[in-house]
Design a protein around this nucleic acid. Structure first.
Lengths: 340, 340
DNA sequence: GTGAAAGCGCTAACAC
DNA sequence: GTGTTAGCGCTTTCAC
């Protein structure tokens, strides 16, 4: 069992002074005499004093914490986001408290409730990434009045930071177009997920009236296996370009195609999205769209801190991070360019 | 700015009853009359009451939280661990508080201090995974008296849960041996990291006196790029088997070799370790050693909860999780077997 | 420069 | 059944 932790009172008794002095000394308040302060620190050290944050926060009415909910930590995209957010936050004086919703709206609600009861001073909200009802979460957040910013996707009633998904999709499509494709397949996920719907819409509107035969597949999940299997089915009647909603899917396609003896990009071009590890560690490095997660994180922290300090930053501001086309080797056009 | 949260006192005033009753009702204590309880809940709802956890924890002297420090969330291995731990923990009534040390001993110390001040009731300690001095962390943990279990690696002064790294290494080596290799290269990381040293020792002692030409490379990091580059250097004078400390490295080797026109496993066998995503999404699926992260997580939680409840579970117990050889396509022997 | 005292929001005896 | 009261450990005026 745990030994009872040392309190300020213990130190005060031990030193024969008052709690107030000890507290002031410990907080480095200059009003206490230097030698007194030194004595206090020595005693604190000796007794193994560690402040009780609960007591502290209770009276200060500040938690010094910022909460973060993410849908899935095993997804490299979110893992990078968490890492970036954690880095950016550590300079701010706040500590980050991470919650995982596992893509379940119910867990998300629980996490948000936890954050509210723990009096987080700010919240970074990354909603579940599957079709699901998150109105409960949004209502809770709203009602709490805690400064919140929604990251990587859109929510209509709070500030958001997300990438220019449409722009990215258009850029990569333009790149693909240079190859004069006649049949494009686009592997997307279930509809009802903002970031996927956005991608689908963008590609759809860009291709419209181009005479290109575009076929969109709404897979059950935006993961490796689904894409891998989709590629299998496509093999019989191959399009010349297969675009994917993310890199992990593109990897699945590349691997399956390669297995089948279909060469990428010679026979078919494949594109990813996100510019994650997979785009680099793919046997055929992927042409993709970079979502600058570092930038998302920085902007998110910036806006959140602004909100917390009530800097007069507009609420419900939507901040769009530009995307960048990254040309690697999974699309034909690249090589063409690279070689001349 | 945030509106002032509703307190129990507000509800009491609003309803014209005492705080105690409200508190009891809110906690579902059966002594309060049903209708009173109903009224209280209604009022709480109406006023948007969310309990102040700090006050609660202060008086209860319990945080209801378990802390977790991990070195690197972008590493799929740790990401899976966090996920598994988070899942297992959620049934236990405790909430998990995640800290990222970014493989920096200093950040690790900070995280541990945070956990102690936040009065975590238990700690899952996953030490930094690079050579570095973590005695400070261990001393802090020790001194705090908080039940702690060290996961995925060994620490001499606390309970540990880790995989049978040596056994795993031996198993995969045995498998490789069936091919009668004459020259094996083993790609490891810097020495001074327990889990890597263990692997190195195991392979070293197993190969000793076998007449096999074993060459061990202590790379600066156990990642894709380092392994990729090492493979480049090896190409000139190729061993017949390249073993790696993890799957991510093995993927780097496979990709580089493939680029160089060296076929895996026909010309050289490659092995991984961990059985992570990479072993499955590799263009040549990797023969590897499975570390059952789910099991690690379950056992860790079990031991930790035992420690917290002082179940008389021996402290400083080292629990070893068995590893499993997973034969896929990156080693010759497999195919040999598979085909006959 | 230091101490006494009030109170942060909540819980848990103990009275009534 | 419900109210009164005394803290949990800390910070912070305000006296001295």
């Amino acid at each position: 069992m745990q030994k009872k932790p040392t309190t300020i009172r213990d130190i005060a008794k031990y030193l024969g002074m008052s709690e107030a002095t000890v507290s002031l000394a410990l907080n480095g308040n200059p009003v206490v005499k230097k030698e007194t302060a030194a004595k206090v620190h020595a005693a604190a050290d000796e007794l193994g004093y560690v402040p009780n944050e609960f007591a502290r926060r209770l009276v200060l009415k500040k938690s010094g914490m910022i909460g973060l909910v993410v849908p899935d930590i095993e997804n490299v995209y979110y893992a990078s986001l968490v890492k970036a957010l954690s880095d950016r936050m550590s300079d701010s004086g706040y500590s980050l408290s991470i919650f995982i919703s596992s893509n379940e709206p119910l867990k998300e609600v629980r996490a948000i409730n936890d954050m509210i009861s723990s009096r987080m001073e700010g919240i970074v909200y990354v909603p579940v990434n599957t079709p699901g009802d998150i109105t409960a979460s949004r209502k809770l957040l709203k009602r709490s009045g805690i400064p919140t910013v929604c990251a990587t996707t859109y929510s209509d009633d709070m500030s958001c930071v997300l990438c220019d998904l449409e722009g990215g999709m258009k850029k990569i499509l333009e790149h693909v177009m240079k190859n004069s494709p006649s049949r494009i397949a686009y592997l997307n996920g279930p509809s009802g997920v903002y970031t996927l719907d956005k991608r689908r819409d963008a590609i759809l509107s860009a291709v419209k009236n181009s005479g290109i035969d575009l076929k969109i597949y709404d897979l059950t999940a935006v993961d490796y296996l689904c894409a891998y299997e989709a590629a299998s089915h496509m093999a019989a009647d191959l399009p010349d370009t297969i675009m994917c909603a993310n890199d992990f899917m593109a990897l699945g396609v590349v691997n399956r195609l390669t297995e089948l003896g279909i060469s990428v990009p010679e026979r078919v071009s494949v594109t990813g999205f996100d510019d994650s590890v997979f785009s680099v560690t793919s046997p055929v490095p992927l042409t993709t769209v970079k979502q600058d997660i570092g930038l998302i994180a920085s902007k998110t922290v910036e806006i959140l801190l602004g909100l917390i300090n009530d800097d007069g930053i507009t609420k419900n501001e939507v901040h769009t991070i530009p995307t960048e086309l990254i040309i690697r080797k999974s699309t034909r056009h690249v090589q063409y360019h690279a070689k001349k």
